[in-house]
Computed example of a mutant assay.
Amino acid sequence: MKVKDLMTSDPVVVPPDMPVEALVRLLAERHVSGVFVVDADGTPVGVVTEADLVRRLAPEGEEADLGWLERHLVDPDRAAARYARAHGRLARDVMSRTLVFVDEDAPAEEATQLMRERRIRRVAVMRWGRLIGVVSRADLLKAVVGADALGAETADERIRRAILEEMRRQPWADTRLTIVSVAAGVVRLEGYCRSEEARRAMQVLAERVAGVQRIENRLQLGPAGADATVQSL
């Protein structure tokens, strides 16, 4: 079995300037343990996981609290990076810049081995250097027990799926850089779109889906939205 047979398409992606508070809310609402950070060109630049955010609750000892001798033994660059990740306010501050990825045609065993060796929960799936999906431990579990054993689709999941399917049919919509989340029938649109017209059209598109109670349109204009060639976890 190949990675592309197991991967979750439309991986959740966030812009580098998304506030940490919004990241926490997104992970909770989407029931995911990590998201990829992409720039306006759609290029993945990092990943933020639950571990990165939880670490902020109990940061490692600050170098300012160390004695004179201990402070001189600390690597300044590593200390600076640790400080930024513990106290940063944006995704770019707290993300890990080390991306582990596999090609879509790689065997599933390769993804499994990478997760085990690197002690991670997910690997990015790439096509020609572009992010097209993600394989997580949950995806590997589905391959073992079968997707039907994991429960029926919820109303919010149906709404999100319907929005994404309609977006894929529209040439102006960009599922790669537009984040769609749904909670209790409330649709939140975040990330990038190519123009103000596309932003308004996304509002209309979401409103047409049955079951939608309200739209929170927080899309920003992304200079490279029209050039993105891959689709979004």
Rank of each mutant, 00 (worst) to 15 (best):
F36N: 00
V14C: 08
M18V: 13
P19M: 09
A22Q: 14
S33A: 14
V12K: 09
E29S: 12
P19H: 10
A22N: 11
A22H: 11
F36T: 08
D17E: 13
V14P: 09
H31A: 14
P11R: 13
V13F: 07
V37P: 05
H31N: 14
R30A: 10
M18G: 00
E29M: 06
M18N: 02
V24N: 00
R30W: 01
P16E: 12
V20F: 07
A40Y: 01
E29P: 00
L26Q: 06
L26F: 12
E21N: 06
V14K: 09
P15Q: 02
D17Y: 11
V38C: 11
L23S: 03
V14G: 09
F36E: 03
V12E: 08
A28S: 15
V20T: 10
V37W: 05
D41I: 00
G34N: 11
A28L: 13
V37M: 05
D39Y: 07
D41R: 15
V20P: 07
V24D: 00
V20N: 07
V38S: 06
P15L: 02
D39K: 08
V37Y: 05
V14Q: 09
G42Y: 04
L27H: 11
E29I: 12
V12P: 01
H31D: 15
H31I: 04
A40T: 12
P15D: 04
L23D: 03
D17C: 00
R25G: 06
V35H: 01
A22W: 03
R25H: 11
S33C: 08
S33P: 08
V12Y: 12
L26V: 14
D39S: 04
P19K: 09
D41Q: 14
L26Y: 08
F36W: 10
R25D: 15
H31Q: 15
R25E: 15
V35C: 06
A40N: 03
V24A: 07
V32D: 02
S33H: 14
G42V: 06
P11D: 14
P15E: 04
P15W: 01
G34P: 02
P15R: 10
P19W: 06
D41K: 15
L27V: 11
P16W: 02
A22R: 15
S33L: 11
P11W: 13
V37H: 04
G42F: 05
G34V: 02
F36S: 01
V32K: 00
G42D: 03
D17G: 01
V32T: 11
F36P: 04
R25Q: 14
V37A: 05
